[in-house]
Design a protein around this nucleic acid. Structure first.
Length: 683
RNA sequence: GGCUACGUAGCUCAGUUGGUUAGAGCGCGGCACUCAUAAUGCCGAUGUCGCUAGUUCGAAUCUAGCCGUAGCCA
């Protein structure tokens, strides 16, 4: 290593409406390992992050909790930072996008782009919730998929059939905020003219700062043609008002990446000698790297460099995208208990286990990585406890008992030590290229060599022969020196264990430089176990606790846009308590509406033909005021199947369908999640 | 639907520019050791490299199609 580099590193900003989970941690752990590595190499390296605190979901969540958005994001920020600290994520600065610095840079970048003519204005038509008096993002409109008819789908795409569409195409659209039927309204929006930057972006893309898969993806987007980007949102919106545009706010994705700069600015303000422009000026020679998930490549590899360029700032040196986390080969699942929050993990397991496991899985690519819980336990126990820590454990006791904690003056096998040191450069290259998995494999192969060495020498045999004192001393000194190299190389991954090892060895925090020289003639402390094994019961307990999190009432649960504003008291009030048997008498079944038709002579009723999966029923339902018959055909709902038939003027009604709401247009038919089939019992 | 990745031992993954009998760790079977948090060392078994066709003297590796998985479509 020759030259000291100036490096600024970021992780994507977590959204401030929910807790950190192990999926998030892939990125923070990956970034933190890289940042710690660069620091160990002696570079001037800064790692910053922040909470992403703006946008509609946060505004609505705060409202649902009956608090201000400011207090919501303050609370979540504290939770996030506690989780990160526990996982040893060593941010130099953790800030918020809802900060004066971020307002400053958002306005500056916008204004400069505006002045250069990169912002356009025009009216667009958008869904509007008349009850809440707000425009609705696509994700806040629900209805039936226009392609396959699946109920309860979001406004942008269908989870059942995968179709993409616009909210206007959705059948029976409803606001997820209030349940009202959205209407289309016009409003003036501001657009960032991305196409102005095509040439610059094509150059930047080819500049070597992108993984090949990502560059390929960008080519696709270039070929499709760069579209203007809608960067404004109408009030009410939690964010920054656009200068000179009352009632218009910056879209959350405009000021989110600017949060990297805001956070760094804050760091500069409290760090003597650290200059913002040295890192962000147009002619900066510093390196700026963004670690992100592959889902947000678009924002970071197109809009972000373009905005920066348009405002006279430098563009990032590189963007490092990673894949998603699966657990036991599948998407994280709440019902299986694999949707594991950082906090829940911490209550059962050592954070460094997960840091090591992720390191052992991560490469420089964008592939997804799998947390196989069985493999996790086996790998951590075998590699860290069985191989690495054991090397210290099996040699330290002799150093203590026989040599009063003093290391020998020479290494018996300096060539072996030199071989290890030489491997350190290969390892450094792997770390630098973010090939952590390769680095871990090589470190473990060296740990095998160290264990073989000790086995060959058999110090326990020497210990029985008084004439071999010096030999024994040498072998154990050699063993501890090999251990020091191994744990030193693992320092970016295992900062806490390494710190404990440094205490044991009585040495300064290790650097790559320091590792090249052996530790000799040196007094070490008494050895204490550095790491214990993972028991299966700990993992089981964590999974159980994660299942329990599902129903936990803590405020910072997973975002739920469907959640209605909490009412202080229920209206109408709750009915009298019943026991289970009373409830179980009601036989609720899933039913498919095969046909719905108007009932001649009745102004409130619809005649429904319901398929119960083998049996058909006719039900006369008083829902005509809220539903057009043709809109009901084919959809699934819930019916009371064992209600006594009732003869009405227009025929016999054999049961009833369930709907919520006071009546009139305010009636909302129940629908099961996709997967339910006619005849299934509801319980 | 379009596009992009991925598919190698029971599990988790390596396999560099196509080149002999395809590798590692865990797990499994056997042996040794007992310094160490039952940790360690040695030996061993295990694969139609997703399927099919092609290019080639030669394919896990290149090409096409198919199947499966994941993601993206602003």
């Amino acid at each position: 290593m020759n030259q000291v580099r100036d490096i600024l590193i970021t992780s994507a900003l977590p959204y401030a409406n929910g807790p950190i989970h192990i999926g998030h941690l892939v990125e923070y752990i990956q970034t933190d390992i890289w940042a710690r590595f660069q620091k160990m190499r002696g570079h001037r390296c800064w790692y910053v992050c922040a909470d992403d605190a703006h946008g509609t979901p946060i505004m609505l969540r705060a409202r649902a909790e009956g608090i201000s958005p400011e207090s919501l994001i303050e609370r979540v920020a504290a939770e996030h930072q506690a989780d990160f600290a526990a996982f040893c994520i060593g941010f130099d600065q953790y800030h918020s996008t809802h900060s004066p610095e971020n307002r400053h840079f958002a306005e500056l970048i916008y204004t400069r782009n505006c002045d250069q003519g990169h912002v356009a204005q025009r009216e667009i038509e958008q869904a509007y919730d008349p009850r809440e008096q707000m425009f609705l993002p696509d994700r806040f409109i629900k209805g039936e998929c226009p392609k396959c008819g699946a109920a309860d789908q979001y406004g942008d795409n269908c989870e059942a059939c995968g179709a993409s569409y616009s909210p206007a195409e959705l059948k029976n659209p409803r606001s997820a905020v209030s349940g009202a039927v959205p209407e289309m309204r016009r409003s003036e929006h501001y657009f960032f003219k991305l196409a102005d930057f095509e040439g610059m972006l094509r150059d930047w893309t080819r500049g070597g700062g992108l993984q090949t898969q990502v560059a390929n993806k960008l080519d696709e987007w270039f070929n499709a043609g760069l579209q203007e980007w809608d960067i404004s949102r109408d009030a009410p919106y939690f964010g920054f008002e656009i200068p000179g545009a009352p009632g218009k706010f910056f879209y959350v994705w405009l000021d989110a990446p600017i949060g990297y700069m805001a956070s760094f600015q804050h760091l500069c303000e409290r760090t003597p000698g650290l200059e913002f422009d040295r890192y962000w000026g147009a002619d900066s020679t510093a390196e700026v790297y963004h670690f992100i998930g592959k889902d947000i490549i678009y924002f970071h590899a197109l809009f972000w460099p373009a905005m920066l360029h348009g405002a006279g700032f430098r563009t990032p040196s590189a963007i490092f995208a990673h894949g998603f986390l699966t657990v036991d080969g599948q998407k994280m699942s709440k019902s299986r208990g694999t949707f594991i929050r950082a906090r829940t993990y911490l209550e059962h397991l050592n954070p460094e286990y997960l840091r090591y496991y992720f390191a052992a899985k991560l490469g420089a690519g964008v592939d997804d990585i799998d947390l196989s819980l069985e493999d996790f336990q086996a790998k951590v126990n075998a590699d860290l406890v069985g191989k690495i820590v054991n090397i210290a454990s099996r040699t330290a006791s002799f150093i203590h008992k026989r040599f009063a904690g003093q290391l020998a003056a020479n290494l018996p096998e300096p060539e072996l030590f030199a071989e290890f040191v030489a491997a350190g450069e290969t390892l450094a290259a792997a770390y630098d290229q973010r090939e952590f998995a390769r680095a871990m494999r090589e470190i473990m192969a060296l740990a095998d060599r160290a264990n073989q060495y000790i086995d060959e020498q058999a110090p326990w045999v020497m210990a029985k022969d008084p004439g071999r004192e010096a030999e024994l001393h040498g072998v154990c000194t050699q063993g501890l020196n090999l251990f020091r190299l191994l744990i030193g190389w693992l320092r970016p991954v295992l900062p806490a264990t390494t710190a404990a090892a440094e205490d044991f060895l009585r040495i300064e925090p290790l650097t790559w430089q320091a590792l090249s020289q052996p530790l000799l003639n040196h007094q070490v402390a008494k050895f204490k176990p550095l790491m214990t094994r993972i028991e299966r019961s700990q993992i089981e307990a964590m999974l159980e606790a994660s299942k329990a999190d599902l129903t936990s009432p803590t405020a910072a649960t997973t975002p739920d846009p469907d959640q209605n504003p909490a009412a202080p008291t229920l209206d109408p009030p709750l009915g009298a308590t019943i026991d289970y048997d009373s409830f179980a008498q009601v036989d609720l079944r899933i039913a498919r509406i095969v046909e719905a038709s108007l009932v001649e002579g009745a102004d409130k009723l619809l005649r429904l033909r319901l398929d119960l999966g083998g049996e058909e029923r006719q039900v006369l339902a008083g829902i005509r005021s809220a539903y057009a018959p043709e809109s009901l055909t084919g959809r699934l709902t819930v019916m009371v199947a064992n209600l006594a038939p009732r003869t009405m003027r227009f025929g016999v009604s054999e049961g009833m369908v369930l709907a919520a709401g006071p009546g009139g247009q305010e009636l909302f038919l129940l629908a099961p999640d996709s997967g339910a089939t006619p005849g299934m019992k509801v319980k």
